[in-house]
Write a protein that binds this DNA or RNA. Structure first.
Lengths: 358, 358
DNA sequence: TTGTAAGCGTTATCAC
DNA sequence: GTGATAACGCTTACAA
């Protein structure tokens, strides 16, 4: 963190408040009432005679008075601020989820702070600390790894917490996530039904529950068919580059896999790009399926078979759970909401239309 | 794990603070020093003997003390919080820009509040009001329309402001945006050079500077070639649906346009989708160009000729300008940073490769 | 090197 | 209906 120059020596002449920085006291003076009366008028709490109300409102308008929430929050212990700590808002899944969170927060009169951790536990810890210091009313967290250090920090402050997208093994917290095991299982079954016997799995880092669970679902489907998938599992990062790289390696295998399961959207794009560059037709020579769909908004024509997650709704749900905790004091037991992904079969794993596209 | 206990009913026994909600006073007592000394230690301002420092740090750790930034900010008049008010973070251009802003803010120790206005002036005004009440240190705004109501609010509070992506006609404020006129001019020239004489322009709402300016650049290029573009200009929203709809209408014209210029990424996708559904080959029968590129991350193979904006860098720059204002008191004149778009010619407007694709 | 006192702008509590 | 007073948790200004 950089150093920050100390604020200008406050030359605040009491009788001449800088225009637009009036305080409740200035308003009170101008309206000829006590500060608390102004407070009651602007918060619509307590009674005020129409005449008083009018005078106060006139003073507010005349001075361009803007209440200082800092002071209010210091007293009321509510900041009306939520935080969303995710790995990378650039991933369309998280973009949409974030939008769901923001919309829901805004409806309830809450503002949202967004933080990108890039899968770094260290960044996550620093952000969480900052957020707690800011006294946010609640935090939605996409945990970077399997560790619970950040979670403990939050819990120690009694700040409501909801996990989004990923679970934290062995820790009971409010969670909203997709059924990764089930979705991966179904997608793998789909490939098996298509006759594939050499199915590769590209996934994310160890300790990230989505990466682990999608591998688990894949393995379950294979073993039900009496196969083992171990030697065709690859793990990298949830990025295009990683997907491209792992795919290149797979292409050199003998026999070559006839299908590739990408455990997230970025991996899938990396895979498709490598196949495209290598001139390998999809699904002609290699079928591709992915966990995570790409938003319809961003595609001319959907092509990829996928387990689609309701990202926006997941964000909404997470925000609602969180607001529940924030607004009601009632300490109910942790809730885990697991939504089913939608399995969408498209061209990338079937022979219905032309082979290569995007 | 146990459920989160209700914050102790404020029976705040002064000697026994609830674990994890200790104040600076608790720390001071435990360390046997004055609160101000604790403040000096944790802020690394002022001196403290190693022994004192150690005792304070031990007390902080023992109590799980988390400083309350609200109180700090109330005194120091710095919240270390910036806000980004944009139309829709779901648009990849804004997603990337937001990421640029957040990264830059985080580096400087600032946190970012994100607000989506959906092009609504009303929402914009409400958000801006909330943000000012929260005493954010600065605001980056993508103005929803040509009105300056929100801007006046911000300026009345002497809160630093930077406009992003769009200018506000007749108002001098720090601004970071792309050269829409120039980019549109070049893209249109490219189409003209390709022999096109019936070039349609799909743009956004009136009053949005990017929509207006891109039309202006288009018109300028046409008139330089002795043509008028008026009757092939369409205006809708910056959405897929709008693009699809306007494209359908264009297809019924006689003679049919041979090229379509989409003024943003969503419009372009709507256009391509409609053409695809109508079985019209691109660029075989209709060429397409767009302002805004789609992030490489999201595409298997780039196809669309475009004026690409450096979204991430624009976000960074906006944040830097803002932090400049926030950290330095020196009131310098408004700066306007206009970055050139990169014109990228791809298949959608040339005959080099296969006709229809992504 | 450390401490005292005051105040940041608001609201809770109790009084009139 | 309206007001006086104290407090929220911290830091600035000044003192020792």
């Amino acid at each position: 963190m950089k150093t920050i120059p100390k604020p200008a020596p406050s030359v605040n002449l009491k009788n001449k408040p800088a225009a637009g920085n009036a305080t409740i006291l200035d308003v009170a003076r101008r309206a000829g009432v006590a500060p608390i009366t102004v407070s009651r008028v602007i918060n619509q709490s307590g009674y005020a005679s129409p005449a008083t109300r009018a005078r106060v409102e006139a003073a507010v308008a005349a001075l361009g008075y803007v209440p200082n929430t800092l002071a209010r929050s210091l007293r009321s212990r509510r900041t009306h601020t939520l935080a969303l700590v995710l790995t990378d808002i650039t991933n369309p899944f998280f973009t949409l989820a974030a939008r769901g969170v923001e919309d829901t927060a805004a409806e309830a009169g809450f503002t949202l702070i967004v933080c990108n951790t890039d899968e770094s536990e260290e960044k996550e810890r620093r952000y969480v600390q900052m957020l707690l210091e800011k006294q946010v009313d609640g935090i939605i967290l996409v945990p970077a790894r399997g560790r619970i250090q950040s979670v403990r920090l939050v819990e120690a402050q009694h700040t409501p917490l909801v996990l989004l997208d990923r679970r934290l093994p062995g820790h009971r917290v409010d969670t909203v996530r997709c059924d990764s095991v089930g979705g991966a299982y179904q997608l793998t079954r789909h490939l098996l039904a298509g006759g594939h016997r050499h199915i590769a799995m590209l996934s994310g880092p160890k300790g990230v529950s989505t990466a682990d669970d999608r591998i688990k679902g894949y393995c379950r489907a294979l073993s039900e068919s009496g196969m083992k998938g171990g030697e065709l599992i690859r793990r990298g990062n949830f990025t295009c580059e990683s997907g491209a790289e792992m795919t290149r390696e797979l292409l050199s295998l003998e026999p070559r896999p006839t299908a590739i399961f990408a455990a997230n959207n970025f991996l899938a794009i990396g895979t498709l790009r490598t196949l495209h560059e290598a001139g390998i037709p999809v699904p002609g020579q290699v079928s591709v399926v992915a966990f995570d769909d790409l938003p319809a908004n961003l595609l001319v024509e959907p092509f990829l078979s996928a387990a689609s997650q309701p990202a926006y709704e997941m964000g909404q749900t997470a925000a609602r759970l969180l607001l529940d905790r924030v607004l009601q004091q009632s300490p109910s037991p942790p809730r885990e909401i697991i939504v089913p992904p939608q399995i969408i079969v498209r061209q990338s794993s079937t022979f219905l239309k032309h082979p290569v596209s995007s």
